[in-house]
């Protein structure tokens, strides 16, 4: 038997275990995509929709309605006094117009929609009445990929996924194997401990490879993401992140035999980072005093580096400080974990 076959067989074991578990496949590959679709849709920056306006059903209402309908971007209905008041209260219309020699605009001044509706309706009606604009202008619409929420979100989700993948794929998996006494059984063979560790991490890396391709490919195809920097650099950062987080996963798995305990530890480590490391919104929104702490967290380092590369076109060299943070977390946790690790 060749020297590496123990490694190869252990790698095959981890991959088979992973690929043959539909639930795991869903959580690793399906869930982040669903999350991206859901959040991407919810926070889509849509062009302002047509404005709903009610015109009081009194003399002159038909003319006003015709003028507004001729202009673009209005949904107009003629309503009696009571119905109009109710429609405004319920938010079904943003503005009520009372026709007459002097037009009356009724709207809620604290509601941006109402203020906007007032301005647009007034503008349309004045123009219809013959107002000419003294200043010439033209409009340039900006929907630049790279500045939308979904562009911001995808690197965040990728980072989150790599962290939780390492925690479950390494930390949880090892404790589960210990609880089955499989670790002890393996320790009773001449298996090289380095093969076992190496195979566990190599399997994780392989999954990350697919994850990165899937997430970025999805962002590109479904959301038209434009990558301003090298996707290869992003992949490299993700692999480094996965290695670093595997160290953390190994560390939470060093002693306990109970999967409940390791689940708790995993939450303890990952939940705070999901919150402060800027997965869903920029970590810069947290108070100034905790910024150094937030910036030193490995998930922050990974996500910030990914965003810098993908959204701003930064190169790897410019991300060196963040790379060092990832290396430090990984290195320290590996050294500690290897000292503390129990096979039984």
């Amino acid at each position: 038997m060749s020297e590496s076959s123990g490694f190869v067989e252990l790698y095959k074991m981890r991959m088979r275990e992973f690929l043959r578990e539909p639930a795991v496949l869903f959580w690793v590959f399906g869930f982040p995509i669903l999350l991206a679709v859901g959040l991407g849709a919810a926070f889509r920056e849509k062009p302002v929709e047509s404005t709903a306006v009610a015109i009081l059903d009194v003399a002159g209402s038909d003319e006003l309605a015709a003028e507004l309908s001729a202009a673009e971007g209005f949904r107009v209905q003629e309503l009696a006094e009571d119905d109009a008041a109710r429609a405004l209260r319920m938010g079904r219309v943003a503005l009520v117009v009372r026709p007459g020699a002097e037009l009356e605009y009724r709207f809620d001044a604290t509601n941006p929609e109402g203020v906007l509706a007032r301005a647009r309706v007034d503008d349309a009606l004045q123009r219809a009445a013959g107002r000419a604009d003294p200043r010439a202008h033209r409009e340039t619409l900006v929907t630049e990929p790279g500045s939308r929420y979904v562009d911001f979100l995808i690197p965040g989700l990728l980072g989150m996924n790599i962290l939780s993948g390492a925690m479950y794929g390494v930390g949880f998996a090892l404790v589960e194997m210990r609880s089955r006494r499989l670790l002890k059984r393996l320790a009773a063979t001449p298996m090289k401990r380095s093969h076992f560790l190496g195979a566990t991490i190599a399997a994780r890396m392989s999954v990350v490879f697919v994850e990165v391709g899937l997430m970025l490919g999805f962002g590109w195809l479904a959301f038209g993401m434009v990558f301003h920097g090298s996707v290869l650099t992003a992949l490299l950062l993700c692999l480094l992140g996965a290695a670093s987080f595997s160290g953390l996963g190994l560390l939470v798995a060093t002693r306990t035999k109970k999967v409940e305990v390791v689940s708790g530890l995993i939450n303890l480590v990952s939940l705070p980072m999901f919150v402060v490391s800027g997965v869903f919104f920029s970590s810069e929104r947290f108070p100034e005093v905790i910024q150094p702490l937030v910036g030193a967290l490995p998930l922050t380092a990974l996500i910030d580096a990914l965003r810098a590369v993908l959204l701003e076109g930064a190169d790897l060299a410019s991300q060196l400080p963040r790379v060092l943070i990832l290396l430090a977390w990984g290195g320290i946790s590996f050294v500690l974990a290897l000292r503390l690790f129990r096979w039984s």
Binding site: M1, E9, M13, E17, R181, A188, T189, P190
Partner: peptide, 30 residues
């Protein structure tokens, strides 16, 4: 370790591996 064989009082092997795959794994260590 090369010269002994062991069964522990209770070991749960990996559910989703076949009998042959499990044995190939163990064989690879020797």
């Amino acid at each position: 370790r090369e010269r002994i064989g062991v069964t522990l009082q209770e070991t749960k092997f990996t559910d989703k591996l076949s009998v042959r795959e499990t044995l190939e794994l163990f064989r690879s260590f020797f």
